[in-house]
């Protein structure tokens, strides 16, 4: 494992911890999209089908369990926790899941490295992860006021994606036959979706002002 991959995993982990911290300690999920969180739960559930059958390393298995556990517990908090669920911006968070899920599933059935159940679902999880942030970005546009923790959560997610691209570049030059077009293109698209958000994030940070997106 190289330093970029590790930094990517750690920023990913930090993003989830920041979100759980916000929900668990402040008992609020204001500004957080349940649609995005449910999509992430589906992403991890379909990607880690190999968790008990293919052992890669203790690190991998541990991280998979953390991402599965955290994504499902965030969904549980937002849907079922008696205090947290009251702060959910239900009327603003109207993005339809199936607009993203159905095209990703169809695309994964056409474009994949091998037409098997697990491989198609694994590819589906990559495509879905690429667009899963969209409901969250739409919600941010609508509410406009972004609290620090929500801003940091999205910033850390974007950083995770950026580190993964450096990881792929590194692996391409250091490992023989390391060419994987599907995750690369899906990952690149995903990172580009954060571009706009990054621009405003750094702008507000530089001017020491509260993060606000344009209407």
């Amino acid at each position: 494992m190289n330093i970029f991959r590790f930094a990517g995993d750690m920023t990913h982990l930090a993003s989830v911890l920041v979100l759980l911290l916000k929900i668990h300690t402040i008992k609020s999920c204001a500004g957080v999209s349940l649609k995005t969180q449910e999509l992430y739960a589906i992403v991890f559930a379909t990607r880690y089908l190999d968790i008990f059958t293919d052992f890669i390393s203790l690190y991998n298995t541990f991280m998979k369990l953390v991402f599965l556990g955290s994504s499902f517990s965030i969904v549980w908090y937002m849907r079922s926790h008696k205090i947290v669920r009251r702060s959910y911006d239900k009327d603003q968070d109207t993005f339809r899941h199936y607009f993203l899920i159905v095209p990703c599933l169809l695309l994964a059935m056409i474009i994949n490295e091998k037409f098997t159940f697990r491989e198609v679902l694994w590819t589906f999880s990559l495509f879905l992860e690429a667009v899963a942030i969209l409901p969250q970005l739409v919600l941010l546009q609508r509410t406009r006021n972004i609290d620090n923790l929500t801003g940091q959560y999205i910033f850390l997610l974007g950083a995770y994606r950026a580190f993964y691209i450096f990881n792929w570049i590194y692996r391409y030059f250091t490992e023989p036959h390391y060419v994987h077009w599907i995750p690369w293109i899906a990952g690149l698209l995903q990172t580009l979706l954060y571009g706009d958000f990054f621009y405003y994030y750094f702008h507000s940070w530089k001017n020491n002002k509260k993060l606000q997106l344009p209407a």
Binding site: R5, I56, K64, N167, H180, P183
Partner: peptide
């Protein structure tokens, strides 16, 4: 079967 190398990523 052999795991594709990218399946070792999260």
């Amino acid at each position: 079967r052999e795991q594709p190398q990218n399946h070792d990523e999260l």
